[in-house]
Design a protein around this nucleic acid. Structure first.
Lengths: 125, 125
DNA sequence: CTACTCACTTCCATAAATTAAGTGACTTCC
DNA sequence: GGAAGTCACTTAATTTATGGAAGTGAGTAG
């Protein structure tokens, strides 16, 4: 996977990551692909947070450009795609887990998948 | 610390966290407070990424509202503040470490503090 | 008195997000 | 065969946020 031509604003790895992941939606798309078995455009759009289709479209494009997501047609006429995380994308899991754990601990509770909780415990060991 | 009145868009802990942390600047402020010994407005503003003062001001306000940052006056006339992470704010460290590790691994290298690298290794064990 | 520092705030042009509606390629129902 | 529906988007219009520059107020130093 070739990375897009992109002038990073900083040499800091955190700042660089945030240029791709640093918004309110991108990691939710990753969450749904990773854990919630949502793989079509429609499924992703119908997440609890209801991200609008133009943003979903744009975010998927960016994730694909950076090689975090791939899609393959699951039917022709009309062509319909199934979106999947790549290995690189799947490596975002610890980030998601820690963000989830932190939010759960500090933001008035919030839903916290008990199946996942176990994984969080593992990640923070 | 009382949390601000806030209607979260979702019950998901990740979505909630992203309402506070999900942008390109907030976690960089946290990074500078946590590791780079930057504590005054000016020091924070002069980070490598040069966030404009209006955004720094707004981000600090939000971090303080949520109890992740506190400030105390280090002088009067004129009053000057020193910003510090609270315990809650310091608990963001694993998130930063994983974002740093991921960015280093996948975004064309990027600077990666060798002192911190050790901590990353520990966090991902 | 003048210049300078620090910690902001205000202003403004641009960019991004939100909301709503529309499009194209079909499939299914009557 | 026409009408309605589904899916995967795109386009347009409005609102909000961002980024860059300049300004302000309270001082200190020369």
């Amino acid at each position: 996977m070739t990375k897009p031509e992109h002038e990073f604003r900083s040499r800091c790895s955190i700042a660089r990551s945030l240029e791709i992941l640093g918004d309110k939606w991108t990691l939710l798309v990753v969450r749904d692909l990773m854990w919630h078995d949502k793989h079509t455009f429609q499924e992703l759009q119908n997440s609890e947070e209801h991200l609008p289709p133009n943003l979903l479209s744009q975010r998927l494009k960016r994730l694909m450009e950076w090689g975090l997501v791939e899609r393959e047609a699951y039917q022709d006429r009309p062509v319909r795609y199934r979106y999947e995380l790549t290995d690189q994308g799947r490596e975002l899991e610890p980030i998601l887990l820690h963000i989830m754990a932190w939010g759960h601990a500090h933001l008035n509770g919030g839903l916290y998948d008990p199946v996942r909780a176990q994984t969080v415990a593992k990640a923070s060991r």
